[in-house]
């Protein structure tokens, strides 16, 4: 009687460990795309952002864009490294993206209100403020959640 074949254990996929260079490249390309849009549409692009900000549609739109980009980067890195994306990590990434953008936009609303009465050319100045704040908000939303996730993974060895 022949010996039974050894049972092959199901191959466990290791948890995904994030490196900061992964989201950095995506954020850099997003940043360069923003620069191209500002250079090609120097009037209409900032005005569109300012209109979106005043109608309250800019923050949700930024959360959706940053969230989709972050999810795309996370899944792509998991696929490239043949690693399993953690549920907790994905949830933390999503929550931090939304929190970063909402926090920065709330900060911006305070700034615009306080600055609008202090400058000689309020409309143009506020448009520039909103343009700059949208840019820094978007890049923060793409980079800061990964920064926190990286530190959490590194310090606590959490299964994120």
């Amino acid at each position: 009687m022949s010996a039974p074949a050894p049972a092959t254990a199901p191959q466990q996929r290791r948890m995904l460990r994030i490196r900061l260079s992964d989201p950095a490249a995506a954020a850099a390309y997003g940043s360069l795309l923003f620069a191209v849009l500002v250079l090609i549409f120097p009037v209409s692009f900032p005005r569109m952002l300012a209109d979106g900000w005043f109608t309250g549609r800019l923050t949700p739109a930024l959360i959706v864009i940053a969230g989709l980009l972050n999810a795309g980067v996370y899944l792509r890195v998991a696929h490239l490294r043949s690693a399993k994306p953690g549920l907790a990590g994905s949830a933390i990434l999503g929550v931090l993206t939304a929190l970063t953008l909402v926090g920065l936009m709330l900060l911006e609303s305070q700034v615009v209100r306080s600055q609008i009465s202090h400058v000689s050319n309020p409309q143009a100045y506020v448009t520039e403020e909103i343009l700059a704040h949208t840019y820094f908000g978007l890049i923060s939303g793409l980079f800061i959640p990964y920064l926190f996730l990286r530190f959490a993974q590194g310090l606590k060895r959490l299964p994120l």
């Binding site: 260079s21 950095a24 490249a25 850099a28 360069l32 620069a35 343009l131 840019y135």
Partner: peptide
């Protein structure tokens, strides 16, 4: 390389925004 590209692109956009302001 990736992190330097990020810093460089943020710096370029910041300088463009400063120019506009």
């Amino acid at each position: 390389r990736n992190l330097s590209l990020l810093v460089f692109s943020i710096s370029i956009v910041t300088e463009i925004l400063l120019d506009r302001l």
